[in-house]
Design a protein around this nucleic acid. Sequence first.
DNA 1: CGTTGTGTTGATATTAATCAACAAGTGTGG
DNA 2: CCACACTTGTTGATTAATATCAACACAACG
Lengths: 246, 246
Amino acid sequence: MSTLRSRPNSRVQGSEPCGSCGARQASICAALDDQDLRQLAALALPVPVAAGHSFIAEGDPAEYFFNVTAGTAKLFKLLPDGRRQITGFATTGTFLGLAVSATYAFGAEAVEPTRICRFSRHRLRHMLDAFPAMERRLLEVASNELVAAQEQMLLLGRKTARERVASFLVAWAKPAPGCVPSLPPPGEVRLPMARGDIADYLGLTVETVSRTFTRLKADRLIATPSPSAVVFRDHARLIAIAAGQA
Amino acid sequence: MSTLRSRPNSRVQGSEPCGSCGARQASICAALDDQDLRQLAALALPVPVAAGHSFIAEGDPAEYFFNVTAGTAKLFKLLPDGRRQITGFATTGTFLGLAVSATYAFGAEAVEPTRICRFSRHRLRHMLDAFPAMERRLLEVASNELVAAQEQMLLLGRKTARERVASFLVAWAKPAPGCVPSLPPPGEVRLPMARGDIADYLGLTVETVSRTFTRLKADRLIATPSPSAVVFRDHARLIAIAAGQA
DNA sequence: CGTTGTGTTGATATTAATCAACAAGTGTGG
DNA sequence: CCACACTTGTTGATTAATATCAACACAACG
């Protein structure tokens, strides 16, 4: 549906400093590797962000939007006393910039070595004007994220710890629509984020997450070759648990 | 930004039967009373939905999208055993149809007498083609909802019962951006939804919601002339509590 | 080779859920 | 108009799930 071809005035000047600047809004895991957006990404050079480094600070003026081209980042919101809710993980292809407001509604930090492209809001505006099809694509992405966000509300509001962890594992193993499915169910899945991140994503504590992993292992539903990897030993049952049917 | 004028082929045939059909996706309280969308709404006749009646069934094919023109509806997701999470309340002006998927990811039911306009997906597509500015507007709405959804994740994952109720009251009293602010803080705010709905929205039980209301009253933060109305007696402190600063 | 961060496990505390009872409305039909 | 059923809201007693506090194993790292 469309043709986003680089135009003379569309190139981005070299590699912009992206260390810890501002960005935009909301993206949970909706890979945006549609052709239009691939090209969009190609307009800017990816900049590396080291693990543990933040590149969006909640509350900063939202002057840029981002595209994650490699790695994984966590998106989070904070309460004044330090309580943290991770609203999503941004993986390769995730577009960060859908929510429009004066300031960033969330912070973002790399959980493993990551590469991101940064664009100014201004530039996005121009691109959208030039390529109307992109607007439609963004609307689709936003829609997908909205669906995911609602699913997460169900998880946070009504699911048990076991159901939450199962949901997370199942969802994480199945990359966002549009991504190449990595490995079939029995394969090993990498978990680049720490237990604490999973806890903050699921509205639990580290201890509860750890204990739940342990029980899932005892129940032969998963195996963990290392803390940062899971193997699905009974994918179907895990899906059932995630859906609240167990 | 734009001109959505009615065109010969843009009229909707009379009042469509909207009793309990299908709709689309996700909208929390983002009033869409922008001029474009007013006109969009004008293209279809509003149809009444009685309190307690459902007009979107989760899982049904998503063939329509809706615009709430009066009243209040709750949007919810269910687990097989009946656990329910209300993902948002749709008030006058709320546009339901932003998430794009084959089937509705949520159900919708009127909590008070409500009026809705229904459009086919097909018609929306045509309208978006005819009025590109609408696409942009929809993206804005989606962005706002995404921000709200993330805020709700923070609430569900990390806030205490007291903070949740305070957050709900404060947010409900302050209509979505774009709405006319009803009454200043000290005014009385209507709560058309039942305690059980509030509970399912906040990830709590009815009892906990009720007890929390009682404590907020005891603390002179609110008053409840009737179960379906609240008066803010200390709006500032309520806001502080909602933000986790108490 | 100590130091630090992460993950796991155990003991205990606490919040909110569950179970239960009752009060206050609301609507219906007699 | 009242009696009754039924829903909704509130409150109390108890339970259960998860959080909190604490200790320790282990790996990565300087």
